[in-house]
Structure formats: structure tokens, C-alpha cells
Design a protein around this nucleic acid. Sequence first.
DNA 1: CGAGCGATTGTAAGCGCTTACAATTTTGTC
DNA 2: GACAAAATTGTAAGCGCTTACAATCGCTCG
Lengths: 347, 347
Amino acid sequence: MVSAQRATIQDVAVLSGLSICTVSRALRNLPNVSERAHRKVAEAAEKLGYKASSAAARLAGGSTGSVAIIAPTATAWFFAQAVESAEEVFADGGHDTVLLSLRNSAEVRNRVFADLAALRQRVDGVLLLNVDLDADEIDALAGSGLAVASVGMTGVPWDNVGIDDEHAAWQATSHLLELGHWDLAVLSGRELGGHSVRTSNNRLDGFSRALAEHDLTVHPDLVVNAGSSIEGGRRAMTELIAHRGLPTALFADCDETAFGALKALREHGLGAPKDVSVIGIDDHPMSWFLGLSTVAQPVADQGAFAANLLCERLQNPEQDHLPTSHFLDTKLIERKTTRRNRRTEKP
Amino acid sequence: MVSAQRATIQDVAVLSGLSICTVSRALRNLPNVSERAHRKVAEAAEKLGYKASSAAARLAGGSTGSVAIIAPTATAWFFAQAVESAEEVFADGGHDTVLLSLRNSAEVRNRVFADLAALRQRVDGVLLLNVDLDADEIDALAGSGLAVASVGMTGVPWDNVGIDDEHAAWQATSHLLELGHWDLAVLSGRELGGHSVRTSNNRLDGFSRALAEHDLTVHPDLVVNAGSSIEGGRRAMTELIAHRGLPTALFADCDETAFGALKALREHGLGAPKDVSVIGIDDHPMSWFLGLSTVAQPVADQGAFAANLLCERLQNPEQDHLPTSHFLDTKLIERKTTRRNRRTEKP
DNA sequence: CGAGCGATTGTAAGCGCTTACAATTTTGTC
DNA sequence: GACAAAATTGTAAGCGCTTACAATCGCTCG
């Protein structure tokens, strides 16, 4: 039932024959409301098509009804997926989703985190997607009164879901190593706009560990910064070919970077796995297409899972249960860009 | 300057020695505020790091400070791009962006449009990205008090920016025709969840016109519904091959669909342009990679342009100037999936 | 020099909700 | 059956802002 003019809590109170206060409590499922009152209020609200004004609720000290998703960028495949799946969960939970893209810019990032009180005023909670925070920012966020959850972060005092990046990189690298490769390069996104990217660094660690397990060490020339974009991967690969020559195998710390590398390879008349074996991480939809070997991670699941965790926190704000951490499984997918090393033996 | 407790308009009033009312007016650049008062208020606000509470503003009848972006989905390349560029414009204009993904679901869509008053309560304006509305919904939206702008829509009573879909499809199809193809199939996304997709239909019209100009007619068996995803394109192509056999050329109404088609082709041991010429629309970043011929459209520009238009409307709400319509240019990009027809002459 | 007028500023009444705290009803107990 | 405790409901005071409308100010004009 919908009326021309938006119904207010007042209307519901009148219709149900109860006071505004009781209605307010009933609507929010607060304790100390009798069965009968609860039912009457529900009926009246339904009949009037009543929806509380979030502005008024917020102003009076209640919740805003919205949450923010903060991501370094919204265009990259990973983030677009995670944002959509999280948005769905939030929408179903009755929360509006405000999107805050950091645009890969430290300045934007600082502006957001500098005034958490302003953020708190507009949203009840925040879902962080792979945002690299320093200790101060973590503390500030944890103490801001905002509910927080994240994807792809570690060591944070709130719920987090992600994959074991170190392990995923280890899986990818080990695959290369087991194919007999020993001259490996990495395309890493570990630095971006002066800030270090934790996820990429963890992946780099996994890469190093795998190498170490095969008695190999990481040569600095073979670690090249590529950001996390196709174009970045292409540039990095071009640079690698020019300055150092082709390795026998390449680990790109995300599929999009690998795509770029593949692109650069073609531009040089080279190809994978003929001239170099290439592996990524993600299992981007195009990877199947390109035959890119990779380590798959469940992206939408991570976004949805973290969003659910945040919704729970929002519903039971008082409980101060400990932050939980969830790692979803990753899986090596061997396709056509990796094969056994045919170059000369290890020196 | 930041204080522990959020500054209110009251604080600014006291500090500037003016009344709350004057401060409110000065802050919003309303007329009838002296130079001097304006300056004093600005100073005081700056000193206190004052930011108006949007909840209070909204409740009192002012603006919410946020706008919604409504898109059929947030994951597809086109939408992710447009959303990000629009979000950037909105953020710079001081508006929060709330993301509403329709998840390609009629039900979600109806839920959103059924209660515009609820939407109006939470945002000042709406940016529609290729949302197909029927006449009633258009009227409702236009009369909702929300500022509206859109991308990829036509015949709407608000500002719109897009490309000429009919023309873009015509360009793509004409290219195929000029290469001597006459047995053409289309992968169209014209129907989705029971709703017809205007953009796709316009493209289908462009396809038909190009055919007509070459004295060809569209055969129903050669128009297959593919949605707008890679998977949809793959399924559609597979179906086409099974039920009707390969045409000599294929027009996919977006690049992602074309990718899927290419995928299906490979699965059948076929390839473009060897067995069939393929062209898409978009110029998705992967198209370069795959050598897909396509008609490029400027996506981020469309999002940013429309967002700017919306911001302007938000700033000058009273002016009732006529809705404007802007078409950005598209351009044929001939790559490697299209070539001259080598099959037998036209019957 | 005071009325009259436009420009500026202030007063006060909400906007629709939450929440102390007070009032009332219900329940349990002896 | 009366009284205290517990459960339920109501009263009223804001939350921080916008906005009619009233008040004031500085001038011009007769």
C-alpha cells in the first residue's frame, strides 16, 4: 500500500494505536516490546508502506542505513567483481552502498582517511578492498565507531576474508619451478603511487620462498614493478626484454598483468609458452580464453563473504567478539602458457 | 583544523558572531548575504573544519549530498568504466556516490523504481546507465524531484550522453558488407530477463539498415540472443553453429559477446577470420589483444560527461532548461578478425 | 529630519527519528 | 488480595539543519 505522501512514524503510531516511541522500538526489534505491540506495528507499517527516514534516524543518533565500499579503483576486474557481489549482499541486507574509489591516488586516499568522523556521519560501516593502511590509520578506523570488514588485508583488528597470497604465489611459482625453470622473473604490483601494496608484497614473498626451496635466489633485475593493469604489464615486460632479456619463465602477480606481458611478447614476435612460460593469479575470465595458466581465486565469494560479515557486525553492534580471519582456497590451473623448460641446464 | 567533537553550524555561528541562519545561507551561497558576513563565515568554518551534517540538512529539506548511479550490472567492462569515471566526477563535486546495481534482474529493477520517494529521500540525483525504462517509469522519474542524467538512453526528458548505437552497428555491419560478406549473423543482447534492451535493439536496427542498403534482409535464424557477456556470446555462437551452421561473418553487438563467440569458435576448431569474420562494438582493452575488429566508443568520457551534466543540474536546480542530448563519436577499428569473403557468390 | 524601501540578519518552528526517564501495566509472591 | 519487581508503554527533549517570517539597518527622497 502506498500513499501519496510519505508515511512518517507518527502515522504508524496513530494507525497502530501506540506511541511513537513504541513504534520506533518495535521497528528496530529492540527488547521490551510485547508480542502484540510488535504485531500491530508491523501491520500498520506494512499497510502504510512505511520506511523510516534514514536522515532523521541518523540525526537522532540511529543508523544511516548505508555502508561504504572503499577500493583502490573500481575498474579492475577483481574490484568490479568484489564490489558487485558485496553490493548485492548489502542491498539484500537493507543497506545502501556508497562507492569510494581511491583512484589509485594517495591524495584521495588521505583525504578519505583524514576525516573518519565525516565518513562515520554518512555510513555505518566500511568494507575495505585491498586498501593498504598504516598502523595509525588502522587504529583510527578501529576507533572511529564504524563497523569494518575487509577483503585481502591481514593483521587488521576486524574481520577479514581473503586468500593466502603468499601461498598462491608459491603455488604459481612452484609450478614453474617444477617444470624445470630456474631463470624466473616476476611482474609485481607491489608499489603504486609511492605506497607499497601489501597483497603484492605477500605474493612476492611466496615467490621468493618457492625459489628458496629450490635453492634459487631472487635477482633484483628480475623483479619488475608492473602495477596491476594490462598496460602496466605490457610496459614492464617490454622493459624486461629490453634491459635484461627474456627469462625462461615469468610469474605475473595478477592475470591482468600477465595479459599485458603476453601482449608485449607478441609485439616482439615472441610467445608463451614457446619463448617463455607465463603464469598469473586470479583466473580472470579472459584467462581461459588466452590459455593462461594461473592460480584461481574466488573473487565474488570474497566480496560477498566479507559483506556478510560486515552486515552481521552491523546487526549486533554491542557484541565485541574477536575479529575473524578467513582464507578461501586457491587452486592452480594449468593451461597453455606454461611448459617444461627446454633451455640449458642451470649454471 | 580539526576538533575532537564535530563542529556544528552553531559553533560556526558563535565563532563568526552571526546567527545560525546567516551562516546557513552563507555556506550555501544563497543571495542576501553581505560580503563581510560571507567572509567571516568562511573563515570560521575553515577554522573549525566544519562540514555540514547531510542527515540534518536532508531532514530539514536541504540536499542529501549524494547521487545514485543505477546500472544493470556493475561487473561488465562498460559499466565498471562508466561507474568509475562518474564516481570521480561526483566525488570532485562533493557528492557521495551510491551504487545501485540492478543485477540484470527485473525484480530488483522494479523494486527500485517502484518507490522513487524512498530514493529521493536518500539522494539528490540519479545517473542512469543504459537502464531501459518504460514510459511510466520515465514520467515517474522526471516528476520525482530527482535530478536525472543518463548514459546510453534516448528520448528521455533529461540530459543524456551516449553514442549513436544505430550508427555504430551500421559501421560495423557495413564493414563486413564491404568485405563482400552477405551471409551475416548477429549476436544481440536485445533481450534480458524478459525486458528488451534498447541499446541492443538500436544496434540491431543499424545492422538491418546496413543489410537493407545492400539489398539484403535479416533472417531470423541469424539473429541470436546472447546477452552481453562472454559466456552468453559463447553459448549463442555454439547454438548458431549447431542449429544453422556457420555464416561467413558475425556481428556481435558488444565486444564481450564477440569474445565469447571467438571462444566457441575455438572450441569447435574454428577461427576468425579464417572461418568467419567477426566484429564487435566497444573496443574493450582485450580486443586489441585478440585482434578483434570493432567499433570503438569512449566509455569513460560518456560516464564523466553525464556525471558533469548531472552536477550542473544539481547546482542550478531552479533553471528548467531543456534536456540536452550528446552523441560521442564512434570509430571503426579494423583489426584481424575480419577479412574479405572468400565463399561463393551470393545466391 | 522622518517615512519608506530594499538589503541584510535574526527568530523560531519544525523536519522525522531516537532515547533518557517517567508513567503505567503486568506478573509474581506471601 | 496487596505490594514490589519486572515488563511495557508514553512523554518530551533534542539531533543539526532549513526556511518562513519578523526585525533591523542603511539609505534615499520629499
